[in-house]
Simulated assay, not measured.
Amino acid sequence: MTQTLTYYTTAELAREANVTRRTVMHYADLGLLTPDQVTASGRALYGPYSLRLLRDLLDLRGLGMTLEEARVMVTLRRATHTPAGDYRRDWTREDVPLSDEELHALHARLRIMNEAYARQAENLARFDRWLTKRFTGGVPNEAIDTGLL
């Protein structure tokens, strides 16, 4: 069975990602997002993987990654995934148009970000336990979440 892909106009892609059309156009101008198709009238159409990349870009930027670091991430993703977003098991180093220096710098930055994320996840969990104890009398979150209280 053939899978039919959904394509989004710039405005539809922006709406799906909850950003402005101008944000999508800005990322496209920077080469971070490229249309999967262009209609005869010149309208850009983006596939589902573009939506995923856009959401990833927004998350990466929110985590403090620079536009250049985000560009490297997107380039790496495009080289190792199909246009539909599936991981390509057959990719080779030659498929990745990035220098070893760019990849090493990205790897170092990701390790720093992961370490910071792990520290913050631990801090958030501790704070959640403290709030639970102070405001619910020590009742576990599961009881609150499932409506048992």
Rank of each mutant, 00 (worst) to 15 (best):
T2L: 03
T2D: 05
T2C: 08
T4G: 09
Y7A: 04
Y7Q: 05
Y8Q: 11
A11Y: 12
A11P: 09
E12F: 02
E12V: 05
A14I: 03
R15A: 12
E16D: 02
E16Y: 01
N18R: 12
N18S: 14
T20K: 09
R21L: 04
R21T: 04
R22P: 05
T23D: 04
V24L: 00
V24E: 08
V24H: 06
A28G: 13
A28E: 12
L30K: 02
L30T: 06
L32W: 01
T34K: 02
T34V: 13
T34S: 13
P35Q: 03
D36Q: 03
G42N: 04
A44T: 14
L45R: 02
G47K: 08
G47D: 01
G47T: 00
L51E: 05
R52Q: 07
L53R: 08
L54T: 04
L57G: 00
L57F: 09
R61C: 00
G62Y: 05
G64H: 11
T66N: 00
E68C: 02
A70G: 02
A70P: 00
R71S: 02
V72H: 01
V74I: 01
V74Y: 03
L76P: 07
L76A: 04
R77H: 15
R78D: 07
A79C: 06
P83M: 03
G85V: 12
D86I: 14
Y87P: 11
Y87M: 13
R88E: 10
R89W: 13
R89I: 15
R89D: 15
D90Q: 08
T92M: 09
R93C: 14
D95L: 03
D95N: 05
P97C: 11
L98E: 00
L98N: 05
L98D: 02
E102G: 01
H104W: 11
H104A: 14
A105M: 04
H107N: 14
H107S: 15
N114P: 10
A116H: 12
Y117G: 08
Q120E: 07
Q120C: 06
Q120T: 10
A121P: 04
E122C: 10
L124T: 13
R126C: 13
F127A: 15
D128Q: 14
R129I: 10
W130L: 14
W130G: 11
L131Y: 15
T132C: 13
K133T: 15
F135H: 09
G137H: 10
G138C: 01
V139P: 06
V139A: 10
P140W: 02
N141E: 13
N141V: 15
E142G: 06
A143C: 14
L148H: 12
L148D: 15
